[in-house]
């Protein structure tokens, strides 16, 4: 028997075994199956969510590296990213923690910037707060309650007006009364849905990954907040108007009889009602909401439309306060 040959074989075999154990240790412990080559970039977040070493870093959906380390730096979570050496990241790129798949695998998504200079070894990348479904729907819930408060205030104001039993205000009164039930229902539905979603613990990857939808929601929230802030002002304005009407002053007729505004209001209320009905009919099962493409697009359209209306009426001066209020309601 060739002894030296066997010795070599056994030696190789043993070393191979050690190497395999080492590779497995590296892969399962703190890396990927093959150790990443590349330069390191750090990214700080308020909340790393479920990000952990070994997760991917993607740019435009393409894997460009991995998270090699996560640590706590002065109360913030810092992720150290190892980026493939041949990938260049513009300096003003923005990183965010995103989610893929139902298993809750997180990854770092890098939004490409436009800077001429690229990031270097050891640089820190800008970050954006993590988009989280829970956060988004908490905001919706917030909006809903604000809208409700606002609605109550307006209706109180309107009630004041109606108490005056003045024929001039009957039209405005009608618009609001026609839609009151509709509005209440809508708001209730919205709240129900948002609660259900908020409790859904962020498994609705789909909606949340759509940045636009998210921004829309936030935008509406801001507008409503604005509007709500103006509620008191509005109420006093209304009182003033009522007083003015009582004394036969002001061009209120023009506002009351503005057909376009009225139509717009009615349509939005209708759309929103439709969408919220559908959402509510989904029995709160998150899968259903995700599966229904039309529903998703409807919601988006409504959000956009609402925003546009608010924007459109936004700068028409104090006289359109009622318009803004009505828009915000729906």
């Amino acid at each position: 028997m060739s002894h030296t040959l066997n010795t070599a074989r056994v030696g190789l075999f043993f070393l191979l075994g050690l190497a395999l154990i080492w590779v497995v240790y590296q892969s399962l412990g703190d890396g990927t199956f093959f150790r990443e080559e590349g330069y390191r970039v750090s990214a700080q977040f308020d909340d790393l969510k479920q990000l952990k070493p070994g997760d991917e870093v993607r740019m435009a959906g393409v894997r460009i590296g991995s998270v090699t380390e996560t640590k706590l730096v002065r109360g913030r979570g810092e992720a150290v990213l190892t980026i493939n050496p041949h990938v260049e990241i513009p300096e003003d790129s923005i990183a965010s923690v995103a989610m893929a798949g139902l298993l809750g695998n997180n990854f770092i998504s890098i939004q490409v910037g436009s800077s001429e200079t690229d990031m270097e070894e050891g640089a820190a990348i800008q970050t954006r707060p993590t988009l989280d479904f829970n956060d988004a729907f908490a905001t919706i819930g917030d909006i809903t309650s604000k809208v409700e408060t606002f609605f109550e205030e307006v209706s109180r104001a309107v009630a004041v007006i109606t108490d005056d039993d003045d024929g001039l205000l009957s039209n405005l009164n009608e618009v609001v009364r026609d839609n009151r039930d509709n509005l209440r229902e809508t708001l209730a539905n919205l709240r129900e849905v948002s609660t259900a979603l908020a409790e859904g613990e962020g498994t609705l990857g789909r909606l949340i990954r759509d940045d636009e939808a998210y921004e829309s929601l936030l935008g509406i929230g801001r507008s409503v907040e604005n509007a709500a802030g103006n509620a008191e002002l509005l109420v006093s304005d209304l009182r003033e108007i009522v007083d003015q009407i009582k004394t036969g002053e002001g061009p209120l007729g023009a506002l009351i009889y503005d057909e376009t505004t009225g139509d717009n209001l009615r349509r939005i209320v209708q759309n929103l009602g439709e969408v919220s009905d559908k959402l509510a009919a989904g029995e709160g099962t998150l899968g259903r909401l995700l599966a229904d493409e039309t529903l998703y697009h409807d919601l988006q359209a409504v959000l956009q439309k609402a925003e546009r209306t608010i924007d459109g009426l936004g700068d028409q001066g104090p006289i359109t306060a009622v318009g803004i209020a009505a828009n915000a309601l729906f």
Partner: peptide
């Protein structure tokens, strides 16, 4: 000496 080598190979 050999058992870990065999076992890790079996795993992979």
């Amino acid at each position: 000496l050999m058992m870990p080598v065999l076992t890790i190979s079996a795993n992979l």
